[in-house]
Design a binder for these strands. Structure first.
Lengths: 223, 223
DNA sequence: GTTTCTTGTGAACGACGGTTCACATCTTGT
DNA sequence: ACAAGATGTGAACCGTCGTTCACAAGAAAC
C-alpha cells in the first residue's frame, strides 16, 4: 500500500489540482481534498510542493505548457492572416471543448484578489501569444495583406480579446449564460455559426483601410 | 455614540463592501473587516443582511443600478451606430476611471467558484445592455447604416466583448499587465490612442458588407 | 537479516472568519 | 420620568483549512 509516487501519480495529482482549482477557485480549494481525491496523503503533497500557492502555480504552468504546444502546432504552417484567424477560432473552440478546466483555471488567474502576482503570471501566459499575434499581423501589414493604419500590437490585442471572450463563453458558467442572452439558448452547440460570424466580424477589420473614405490600397484595388 | 444607522451610514457600508469585495474577492473579504472599516459592529451588519452572500449581492445590485443609469443617460439621444460606439467607448473609459471598484466587482461576479448563482446574476447584469445593443444594431441594419449580413445578437455580443475587455484592461491588475505586453505601455496613459484604434477596428466591422468584393452600399458610396 | 535512509501517512495544531447572542444603549409611548 | 421595545455592540463559538510532525512502511546498503 505504501509506494513511491510514480510519475503517473504525480500527473494525476496535477490534474486533480487543475480540476479543483478550476471548479472552486484558489481559496475554496482544500489541499486535503485534493490529496484525498488524488489518492495520496496531504503530507506527501507538501513534500512535493512548498505550499498551496506553489502547487497552484504548478497547475497553471502545466496548463500553459499544453496551450503553448497547441498554439505552436497550429502556427507551424504559414497562412494568410484570415486563414490564421479561421484556424485559430476553430482551434480555440476545440481546445475549449477538450480542456474546459484549463480555461476556467486561466480565468481564475485573472482574478484580482489572488495573492499570487498578477504581473508575472500575465507574462508567463500571455507572453507567447502576444508576440506571436503581433508578429503575424506586422508581417501581414508589410506584405499588404492587412490594413496598415492600425497599430499591430493593439490590433493583436483586440483580436486576442475576442478569442479570450470566446473561450470564456464556452467554458465559464457566467459567460455561458451571458452568451445565451445575446445569441439565444442553443448557441453553445452552434459552433460553426459562431465561427462564421466571428470571422466576418474580424475580416472586415483586417482588410478595410478606412471606413468612410474610399481610397486605393498599396496594391491598387479599391478597398 | 449609539445611534440608529442613517441612510448615509448604510451607503457607506455598501461602498465599503464594494471596495473590499473588489479588492479581495468574495471569499477573502471578512465581514468583521467590512464592519470595522465602515465604523459599525458586525452584529448590526447581520441585522441588515442575512449573511455574506446577501450582502455581496446587495453590493453588486448597487453597482448595476449605477451602471444602468449611466447607460440609459448615454443612450437617451439618438445617434448613428458609429457615434454610439464612440460615445460608448468614451463612456466606458470614464466609468472605468470613476468606478474602478465597480468593474473589479463585476469581474469578481464572473468567477466560476462563487456560490451565488451565475445565471441569475448574468441576467441581472447583462440583460439590459444585451437588449439595448441588439436593438440598436437591428435598427441600424434596417435603416442601412450597418451591414446586414451579421446576426444582430452576435454582432452585439462581439461588440460588448470588446468593451468588457477594455473595462477589465483599465481596472484589473492582470489585464493591465496583459495590455502592457501587447501595447508596450500603460493603458491608463494611452486612453486616446486606445479609443481611436478600437474605433477603427470596430468601424470596419460596422460598415463593410463583404471584405473581398468592393461594392456599393444602399446609400451609393463605395465601401 | 538487520540497520539506515528515504518516503508516505494522517491526526492534530493554530489561525482565521462567518455567525450568534447576552448585553448595553437609545427611542418611544405614557 | 420610567417602562417597554427597538437597535447597536463585540466577545466568543464553531467549523474550516493550511500546514506540521511523530510515526509507519518500504528500499537500500551491508
Amino acid at each position: 500500500m505504501l509506494k513511491k509516487l510514480t510519475e503517473e501519480k504525480l500527473n494525476e495529482v496535477l490534474e486533480t489540482g487543475i480540476r479543483e482549482f478550476a471548479e472552486r477557485g484558489l481559496q475554496q480549494t482544500s489541499m486535503n481534498a485534493v490529496a484525498t481525491q488524488a489518492g495520496i496523503s496531504v503530507g506527501v503533497l507538501y513534500k512535493y510542493y512548498e505550499n498551496k500557492d506553489t502547487f497552484f502555480l504548478a497547475c497553471v504552468r502545466r496548463c500553459t505548457e499544453e496551450l503553448e504546444q497547441f498554439l505552436h502546432q497550429l502556427c507551424a504552417e504559414e497562412h494568410k492572416p484570415l486563414q490564421y484567424a479561421e484556424a485559430l477560432i476553430g482551434a480555440v473552440q476545440q481546445f475549449s471543448r477538450q480542456h474546459r478546466d484549463y480555461i476556467r483555471l486561466y480565468h481564475e488567474v485573472t482574478h484580482t484578489g489572488n495573492p499570487v502576482h498578477a504581473a508575472a503570471l500575465a507574462q508567463q501566459i500571455e507572453g507567447v501569444s502576444s508576440k506571436l499575434y503581433t508578429d503575424i499581423i506586422q508581417r501581414a501589414q508589410q506584405s499588404g495583406d492587412v490594413r496598415s493604419d492600425l497599430d499591430p500590437g493593439l490590433f493583436a490585442f483586440f483580436f486576442d480579446n475576442l478569442l479570450m471572450m470566446m473561450q470564456f463563453s464556452y467554458c465559464c458558467p457566467y459567460y455561458q449564460e451571458r452568451f445565451r442572452l445575446y445569441a439565444g439558448g442553443d448557441i453553445l452547440d452552434n459552433t460553426d455559426f459562431v465561427t462564421a460570424q466571428l470571422l466576418k466580424f474580424m475580416e472586415s477589420a483586417f482588410t478595410l483601410e478606412q471606413a468612410d473614405i474610399p481610397h486605393r490600397s498599396p496594391k491598387g484595388e479599391i478597398v
